[in-house]
Amino acid sequence: MHDNKKLPAVVLADRIDAVIRRMTLGIGWCYVLLVLVIILQVVLRKGFSHGLIALEELQWHLYAIGVMFGLSLAQTSDAHIRVDLFHSGFRTRTKRIIEILGILLLLLPFITVIFIHSLDFVADSWRINESSSAPSGLPWRWLIKGAIPLSMALLALAVLSRLYREIVLLARGE
């Protein structure tokens, strides 16, 4: 498990991160809800021989929301897995430059591609008012698909906050 490593303070970035953390930690409660939904489904299925497809689908809806918005939480708490072998030995300045270049050349292009293409993806779903393909499944599929652009936008915000923090710290020589 990764503990939240405290990054050096930078006022604006700290504020943005705090907002993102509060939001995503709130969204994280969907996992508690997921436990309850699964238990309810087990009780209905085993106790009353009647599981509900809608509950089955609600499970992966909740899981998907937790996963997608959790990305931003992991970003602000610097929890994404790194290969530490050489990294831990680099000078702080080198680390900052790596982080800045990585964000600009690898991460932001990746987020941008997903974000742009997800807009069409959600729009299509909205246009045809897509619902589950199971007869008694959940309607409004565009709603859960909308989690992709929204979570990517939030992740971009978290990443830009980190970028700003690294640039400021680099300039300050910290």
Partner: peptide, 14 residues
């Protein structure tokens, strides 16, 4: 056919 089975009290999954 899944909708038909549902009407007969069957829980269907895909």
């Amino acid at each position: 056919g899944a909708s038909v089975m549902e009407k007969l009290g069957v829980g269907t999954v895909q």
